[in-house]
């Protein structure tokens, strides 16, 4: 490829893909639990891979989704490569009750979620232990099915289901406690 072609490819990539950098960084932060250095490395890896495969991208289709898939796969590869020590999670500590039991009568539609700022929600996701956070991000932010998550993380479907359940309960509890603390709910 001539230098002129390289420049044209780079210009096109920058125009189409780099507008999604903040979205990619947001996803990386959610996956890594707010680790800025790891997240930046992940976005760089994803951008480089996307650039190298730019000829496979069909202009005009959903570039953001395409980039997010590349970033997600880069994270999953890294997730398996890392020397992972099991996260110490006290499973018993995670309540299984829904916040509905607290807010049901006063706020039956849980409108308190609406009054939480986005940053509070993203911070609560990032604060979840990795075992809970990763299945939750893949499911609830990326729309993967239970079998897809199980395959990505090399876990049985039943484990994915139970971690997802606990992740959601813990996240819900965290947001509800915060809402009470700042007076959004009494």
């Amino acid at each position: 490829m001539s230098q002129v072609d390289h420049d044209a490819k780079r210009d096109q990539f920058e125009r189409e893909a780099l507008v999604h950098l903040d979205d990619l960084y947001g996803l990386a932060l959610r996956l890594t639990g707010g680790d800025e250095t790891r997240s930046e490395d992940l976005v760089q890896t994803a951008c480089l891979r996307a650039y190298q495969r730019w000829d496979q991208y069909e202009l005009g289709t959903n570039c953001r989704a395409w980039l997010m898939t590349i970033l997600r796969n880069a994270f999953i590869n890294e997730f398996h490569m890392r020397d992972r020590r099991p996260t110490v999670v006290d499973y018993d500590e995670v309540g299984e009750r829904s916040v509905f039991e607290q807010v049901g009568t006063e706020d039956p539609e849980s409108r308190f979620f609406e009054n939480l700022v986005d940053e509070r929600i993203t911070a609560a996701i990032e604060a979840l232990p990795e075992d809970f956070r990763v299945p939750l991000v893949l499911s609830d932010l990326q729309g993967l099915s239970y079998p897809e998550i199980a395959s990505a993380l090399s876990l049985p479907v039943g484990t994915v289901k139970s971690r997802l359940f606990r992740a959601r309960r813990r996240l819900q509890r965290e947001l509800y406690d915060y809402a009470r603390e700042v007076g959004i709910v009494s």
């Binding site: 960084y25 993203t122 991000v137 932010l141």
Partner: peptide, 15 residues
């Protein structure tokens, strides 16, 4: 709850 997480959990972050 799930709708809120899906709609707001991916809030972009500037760097």
């Amino acid at each position: 709850f799930l709708d809120h997480i899906a709609a707001r959990g991916l809030a972009p972050t500037r760097s």
